[in-house]
Design a protein around this nucleic acid. Structure first.
Length: 648
DNA sequence: TTCCCAACGTA
DNA sequence: CGTACGTTGGGAAT
């Protein structure tokens, strides 16, 4: 706790907050102005509708702000509502203050509406039923953050950064008074005449005090936006719905919001890597780290064994040149991929030499000494940027090689002294997810087995490998006809599951948008062009990833995959954030998320408790996520000193 | 400088 | 069987 003033909570503005009115997990909107303070808005159950209560809390030191937020977290346990985690949660994250439950308006907006854009103006417009506003101008660095996001205020107190600017019909009043508008009682300060959110309004405040007052308007607007998002999610179809049961889409929104916090923690804390082990390993594979230009040239001598088998100088890094060179020695291939060349390994010594060279070169260029220096900090943590929901299906993504680290390098991922890894891997998550989302009773029955391909094989009258291929062919759309008969039997044995997949396929071909089981919108229709501002050079490409020249069959496979991969990602994240919530009690942390695998680091003494937590969390998550489906999920948990000890 | 491709790593 | 994503070097387009 870094709060400088222990007497503060007893009096002052926050005293109202813990006077007994605040129910746990009640929404509490937060807008943070670093170096200034923060603004809060909440809606006491007793107060009349549309009359939120706001507070401003001055705190010039980030540590003081973080301490106060920690105190609110401890005493009120709210559901924090913010426009976006990267900006708003930066202060508590830097102070290692853990906030539990949140509602990330940007993340929920992407869930509800798809697409990539999630700046406050776009989020508000969608929640208010307004047309999408013109995209913020493209810029870079700090300017980009300040333009697109609320919660950063960089004013110095000696005047507005840009002069006060009237927008539209001059309704961007600086006070909180004003007439009715699309939003209701929160005042029209940040809203223009057309109801759109003016994202620059906060930053144009003349003084820190004025900025803090404006922040309360944005906190009220956040609260209102949350309300609308929750209503929209609550009205989505939910097969599990029962009176009094929260709909899955709302639960997904909560999990996706928490996942945004989780990835900020992953970025902050990184993955433990033993640098000495990594350097030794790299030395064996690619040689010593290059310190000089001469060393770089020496590295190119790795080419020699391959070139010895070919005529003349060949640029091995240029696939076209490699293909041409191979043709001169009698190897004629349409491309030079390893899968293509592997069968020809013995046809000419150049092929084997090339394949060996490729493997080494991959390590040297992508995961070599430079990668180590760039991404592993002095504290032995590998750090990269994360997205909590990315791409078509809303999977987590990570940079710096965190998601595509070659298996050979995993020996260098070593738990720190006194601590161990606890690794958990969801088994056969995709076919199990298919059983849930399609509500196929026969497939659900198969999930009762630890290895569900075994009962499927019995059902199909085929062996296990054939059964597995049939399931995968159904889920992802086969193009080569090797699974024909097995697939026909699959269709007869599991008609409900196959119909679900066929529907998705048809939607993909027709360009109809889909929703995942958890409510995420998958854009398949060509996006309408956003209104173009007069000065905007070109709007960023917001077209759906599968629009345009991609053939129908590919769009069908894409959609087929998205309705499985998407819900699998939603289940995974719901599980992960449940684990996260309980880990502080064990002094543990999540250090890696890998689509169906969680890697924890915990004190050795708590390893068994962490393993138990992973099992219990999955059971708890599946209970609501797969309610009524009869589908069983399985997780394999192991306790390890190094990641490579994992059984695969 | 920006964008696309080929190739290959992970799930 | 297929899908997803990140990273690299090379080359073409700008």
């Amino acid at each position: 706790m870094t709060s400088a003033n222990p007497s503060y909570p007893a009096a002052g503005p926050l005293a109202d907050l813990w006077s007994g009115e605040f129910a746990p997990r009640q929404p509490l909107a937060l807008v943070v102005l670093p170096q200034v303070g923060f603004a809060l808005a909440h809606h006491p159950p007793a107060s009349p509708p549309g009359a939120p209560v706001t507070l401003t809390v001055p705190a010039s030191e980030p540590g003081e702000a973080a301490g106060l937020l920690a105190e609110i977290e401890r005493r009120c346990a709210p559901r924090w509502v913010w426009w976006s985690a990267p900006t708003t949660a930066a202060v508590p994250l830097a102070a290692r203050v853990r906030l539990g439950a949140c509602w990330d308006l940007a993340a929920v907006h992407r869930l509800l509406h798809g697409g990539r854009r999630d700046d406050p103006a776009a989020v508000w417009a969608a929640a208010a039923g307004l047309p999408a506003p013109p995209p913020p101008p493209r810029s870079t660095g700090i300017a980009r953050v300040a333009q697109g996001q609320l919660g950063l205020w960089e004013g110095t107190g000696d005047g507005p950064a840009t002069g006060p600017r009237r927008i539209s019909a001059g309704v961007a009043a600086d006070d909180d008074g004003g007439g009715a508008d699309a939003g209701g009682a929160f005042g029209n300060g940040p809203l223009a005449a057309d109801g759109q959110l003016d994202a620059g309004w906060l930053h144009r405040a003349a003084t820190p005090g004025e900025a803090l007052r404006r922040a309360t308007s944005l906190a009220m607007l956040a609260l209102h936006t949350q309300d609308r998002q929750q209503a929209a999610l609550g009205s989505l179809p939910d097969r599990r719905a029962r009176p009094g049961r929260i709909t899955l889409a709302v639960l997904t929104a909560r999990a996706e919001s928490a996942a945004e916090l989780l990835v900020r923690e992953l970025e902050r804390d990184g993955l433990p890597v033993d640098r000495a082990v990594a350097e030794t390993l790299l030395g064996e594979i690619v040689g010593p780290p290059p310190h000089t230009g001469a060393d770089e040239l020496a590295a190119r001598r790795r080419d020699a064994p391959v070139l010895a088998h070919l005529r003349g100088p060949v640029d091995l890094r240029n696939p076209a040149a490699v293909r041409a060179a191979l043709r001169t020695v009698g190897i004629d291939v349409p491309d030079t991929r390893s899968g293509r060349l592997e069968p020809l390994r013995d046809a000419h010594p150049a092929v084997a030499a090339l394949l060996t060279w490729r493997r080494t070169e991959r390590i040297a260029t992508t995961y070599g000494h430079r990668w180590l220096d760039t991404h592993v900090g002095p504290d032995g943590r590998l750090r990269g940027a994360w997205h909590a929901s990315d791409g078509a299906a809303g999977r987590m993504t990570a940079q710096a090689g965190l998601h595509n680290l070659p298996a050979d390098l995993r020996v260098a991922v070593v738990a720190e002294p006194g601590r161990v890894f606890v690794r958990a891997d969801l088994g056969q998550i995709e076919p199990r997810v298919l059983a849930v989302v399609s509500a196929d009773p026969a497939l659900a029955e198969a999930t009762r087995a630890d290895d569900m391909y075994a009962p499927v094989a019995v059902q199909l009258g085929r062996d296990r490998p054939q059964a597995k291929i049939a399931v995968l062919a159904a889920m992802y759309g086969q193009t080569t006809g090797s699974a024909g008969e097995a697939l026909r039997r699959m269709r007869r044995a599991y008609p409900t599951a196959l119909a679900y997949l066929d529907d998705a396929d048809a939607a993909g071909r027709a360009g109809r948008d889909l929703r995942t089981y958890g409510g995420r919108r998958i854009r398949l229709a060509p996006a309408p062009r956003p209104p173009r501002g007069l000065t905007d050079p070109a709007p960023p490409d917001e077209a759906s990833p599968v629009a345009g020249g991609i053939p129908e069959t590919a769009r069908g496979r894409f959609a087929r995959n998205a309705v499985i991969q998407g819900p699998a990602a939603e289940l995974f994240k719901a599980w992960a954030v449940t684990v996260r919530a309980e880990l502080p009690a064990l002094d543990g942390e999540i250090v890696l998320c890998l689509h169906d695998e969680l890697l924890l680091q915990v004190p050795a003494a708590h390893a068994d408790a962490a393993a138990d937590l992973l099992h219990r969390s999955l059971a708890a998550t599946a209970t609501y996520w797969a309610a009524g489906s009869g589908v069983r999920f399985v997780v394999e948990v192991s306790i390890l000193r190094r990641w490579s000890d994992a059984v695969h």
